[in-house]
Design a protein around this nucleic acid. Sequence first.
DNA 1: CCTTGACCTTCCTATGATGGGAAGGGGTAG
DNA 2: CTACCCCTTCCCATCATAGGAAGGTCAAGG
Lengths: 140, 140
Amino acid sequence: MNIGQASNASGVTAKMIRYYEQIGLVRPADRTDSNYRSFNDRDINDLRFIKRARSLGFSVKEITNLLSLWRDRTRPSREVKGIADGHVADLRSRIAEMQAMADTLSALSDCCAGDDRPDCPILSNLSGDTPAIAPDQSQA
Amino acid sequence: MNIGQASNASGVTAKMIRYYEQIGLVRPADRTDSNYRSFNDRDINDLRFIKRARSLGFSVKEITNLLSLWRDRTRPSREVKGIADGHVADLRSRIAEMQAMADTLSALSDCCAGDDRPDCPILSNLSGDTPAIAPDQSQA
DNA sequence: CCTTGACCTTCCTATGATGGGAAGGGGTAG
DNA sequence: CTACCCCTTCCCATCATAGGAAGGTCAAGG
């Protein structure tokens, strides 16, 4: 399988496959006589693994760990769970942050007429006139 | 006020103030004879505005628009509301995405013993053994 | 056999917002 | 006058991804 076929089979773009190889996330693929990369089923499995882990929001660094744990048949599941839980905590904290932003902003938007008149509580708030509605104006 | 004082007064780092000037988000500050940037109260207000808008997750591009609307006393509030609502929608969709990741992952983690044994449903799922629990394995 | 078109290779560049750091000049207090 | 801190510009790094250029390769068909 050349890189285009591997891309189709794994859902990872050719560009990203080369990148993952370059940063050492996957082992360098075999090469044909004409220097084309050649992928086997195991490579495809790795790429699919990566694809799924990325879709769950794991960083490349985390995936490096997950991949090596995946290949180690004797690893304790504790380690994997640790990585996963850390990532969940990270996700939840980012979610909370964005949720707070969305709530603040949509409250402001609800107060805004949204018509031809220039009065706008959204801009008023951003310019500091009404600090009450912005809970984290000074340090966020 | 030189850039350090402006930074303290606005909460925007000196580094970022220079960057915002460079990309045209704020007008170039006045210069002293010795080429130091010199900021007045209005500049500080702009920087504070930017700081707050960033803390609400607006991109620099969005803030460019907000700033020009802010300066235009006759703008219709509709435009501002439009930007804000678009941004809220964007936030909410990213939140939903991350929420789905977190839920999937924490369900997997709940199934993982997290002890010395090697069996790990998290890795099993990532490697494609149990596709049922991953709702968006193919396109996300 | 040669051309065409699709594919591959490497290398460079950009994104967005931010931080780090080097090299050199300025300003002020002691 | 000399420290010492602040300022200046310029370069580089992050993270994951995409775009593109220049050139080599392969398979199919004329």
